Amino acid sequence: MTWPPQSPELNPLEMVWGELDRRVKAKGPTSAKHLWELLQDCWKTISDEPPRSYSSGCATKNVCGQARSMSVLPNVYSESNILCAPANSTDLKPGNFLWCLTCFSYTEDHCLGDEIMCSPGEDVCVREYLRTIHDGWDVTEITRRCGKSIECGRVGSIRSTEKTMLVNTSCCYGSNCEPPATTLPSISDEDNGLICPDCFAKKSDRCKHFNNIKCTGDETRCMSYVKTEKFVTESLHGCTTEKICEVGSRTVKLTGRYKKSIIHNITCNSSNTWRSAIYSLFILLVPVLCLMKACL
């Protein structure tokens, strides 16, 4: 983004002076000495708590999606995040600005990150737990980010014979709110009589060889899942739960120090009972067996 010279509207220092002026006036200085004392005291609070300002209006395409940070003075920083929506859109409304903590960690106590302004359509702050079991590894990840309310309560499993993912998502409403801590679902060993196509392929958006997998617990749907992060893609077919299918495909974007974009493409359909599958196979084999007996 080109920074226009001599522009007080876009000069971040002007926002600092404006905030300092408002804080000093609110305390009501009574003398020049008192004014000087208030200026010093209020300046210290601004250094620890950078002011935020919100504006809405018209913009050109070249500034949309811009995010930048810059140092104004020692310990005083300015961060701008420009969000856009098509003309006549209702996605951006005056005062409709949500801020959420964005962080990524393997432990609950060390999820440290930045407060990020959410994009249009993101109306909740999300805490997401993801446990991945694959190739001898068992790793749990915790992500805090902006999200959509449809993600709230997204709990369940995505499972093939080679890879299993357990997920649980909680939400809260309001800037910098604290989504409740949750627990991941357990892996059930109880066969529920359903069967799905099964495969897992690294570095590919499609599988070439399929087997069958027996679903367990509340896994009532078959799914095709393709994950793309940067330029790395993997695909999986197997069993999943109803909640995973309800949310469906989505794109998760993290900004700030954890900047990345992950595309989740999910297609679900009904499972088949393995008993019905065996019965259908038996019906197909009966004519063959009869022909073989006639030949003998």
Rank of each mutant, 00 (worst) to 15 (best):
D218G: 05
T169V: 15
T183L: 11
W36E: 10
K163Y: 06
I195P: 01
G147M: 01
C111N: 05
S105Y: 04
K148A: 10
K227I: 08
K202W: 14
D21F: 15
M292S: 09
I46P: 00
R68F: 15
S204E: 10
C290K: 10
I82T: 06
L166R: 01
W99Y: 12
P51L: 04
L98N: 01
V232A: 13
S270W: 11
F282E: 13
P287F: 07
G156F: 00
C215D: 00
T60I: 08
A26H: 11
R131Q: 11
L166E: 00
H110L: 14
T143R: 01
F104R: 09
N81K: 14
D41G: 06
R52H: 13
V288Q: 11
T241D: 00
K33I: 13
T183D: 10
C152D: 03
S149D: 11
L98D: 02
K230R: 12
L236F: 04
V288E: 09
V126N: 00
V72Y: 02
E9F: 12
K227D: 05
L83W: 09
R127D: 00
C215I: 02
T228F: 03
C196Y: 00
C111G: 05
A277D: 15
E151Q: 13
M117E: 03
S280L: 15
I213M: 04
F200T: 02
I187E: 11
D48S: 13
E49F: 11
T228G: 04
W43F: 08
V226R: 02
E49S: 14
G238H: 01
P94V: 07
K27S: 11
N62C: 08
F97Q: 07
E37N: 10
S160N: 06
V24D: 01
D198R: 01
C146A: 09
D198P: 01
H34C: 08
S47N: 09
C196S: 01
C152M: 06
L101G: 02
I283M: 12
E242Y: 14
K27T: 10
E115Y: 14
G113L: 03
L35R: 08
A59I: 05
T143Q: 04
Y77W: 14
S31H: 07
T90C: 09
